Computed example of a mutant assay.
Amino acid sequence: MAGATSEHTGDLTIQQMARRSGFSEPTLRYYEKIGLLGEVARDESSGHRRYEPATVDRVEALACLRSSGMTVSGMRRYLDLLAEGDAAAAEQRDLFAAQADKLAADIEQLQLRLTYLRRKADLWNARVRGDADAEKQAIDDITHVMNQFTLKDRTN
C-alpha cells in the first residue's frame, strides 16, 4: 500500500491514538499504567509510545465502552472476561445488560430534565406573549415534571 501513513497501518503515536480514540494523552498513559492496555510498544530510537494494531483495537473497544458510561472497573472486568473467552459469555452478557440498564436510566433522567427545560421555556414564552392561560398551563406542566423528579428521588 504505497503512501500509507502510520495511522492507517495501526502503528500510531500517542497523539494519533488520542485523536482516533477521543481519549486524552494523559488518559492513554493512565490506562497503560493501570494495565488496561497491556504493554504499549516503544520506538527503539526515541522511546515514544507506538500503538500497534492489537493495542489500537483494544483502545477503540475501551473508547466505545467509556462512551457508554462504563467505569474503569467495568472496563477492567470486560477485559478480564474477554480473556476467559466463551466460558465467560454469560458474565459478559450480564455486564453489558447491567450497563445498558444504567444507560437507559440515565437517558430517562435526561429526558425528564429536557422536558423540564422545555416547560420552563413555555412559561417564559407565555409571559412574553402576555398569555395568562398558557402561563397557567406551563406552571401546571412544570409542577408535574417536578413531581416526577421527586418520585424518582423517593424510589432511588
Score class of each variant (00 low, 15 high):
121 A>R: 10
116 Y>W: 14
141 D>M: 02
48 H>A: 09
54 A>H: 04
141 D>S: 09
44 E>W: 01
99 Q>K: 10
37 L>F: 04
38 G>P: 07
147 N>C: 13
112 L>G: 08
65 L>I: 14
32 E>I: 14
139 I>L: 15
111 Q>E: 15
89 A>H: 13
42 R>E: 02
133 D>T: 13
145 V>H: 03
46 S>L: 03
1 M>F: 06
85 G>C: 11
7 E>D: 15
145 V>A: 03
21 S>T: 14
21 S>M: 08
74 G>R: 09
138 A>L: 07
44 E>T: 12
62 L>C: 06
97 A>I: 07
18 A>D: 00
96 F>T: 02
25 E>Y: 07
141 D>Y: 04
133 D>G: 08
138 A>Q: 08
111 Q>A: 13
124 W>V: 13
13 T>L: 05
94 D>K: 08
117 L>R: 11
62 L>N: 10
106 D>Q: 08
114 L>V: 14
59 V>M: 04
101 D>K: 13
38 G>K: 07
22 G>R: 05
35 G>A: 05
67 S>W: 03
97 A>T: 10
4 A>M: 14
50 R>C: 13
114 L>G: 01
87 A>Q: 13
71 T>D: 03
99 Q>R: 14
38 G>R: 05
133 D>L: 06
125 N>I: 02
31 Y>R: 11
26 P>A: 09
11 D>F: 15
66 R>V: 13
46 S>R: 08
25 E>N: 04
134 A>I: 13
107 I>S: 09
105 A>S: 10
78 Y>H: 10
154 R>D: 10
106 D>P: 00
91 E>S: 15
82 L>D: 07
78 Y>M: 10
16 Q>W: 00
133 D>Y: 06
144 H>N: 03
86 D>F: 09
50 R>Y: 00
57 D>G: 08
90 A>R: 15
15 Q>L: 04
143 T>D: 00
66 R>W: 11
10 G>Q: 04
18 A>H: 04
147 N>M: 07
26 P>Q: 08
13 T>H: 02
48 H>R: 15
127 R>W: 03
70 M>V: 06
110 L>G: 00
32 E>H: 05
128 V>N: 06
29 R>G: 02
72 V>N: 00
60 E>F: 11
117 L>W: 12
94 D>F: 06
135 E>I: 07
30 Y>Q: 00
128 V>H: 13
156 N>C: 14
44 E>K: 15
98 A>L: 09
76 R>Y: 00
71 T>S: 15
53 P>S: 05
2 A>F: 14
38 G>W: 11
120 K>A: 10
136 K>R: 15
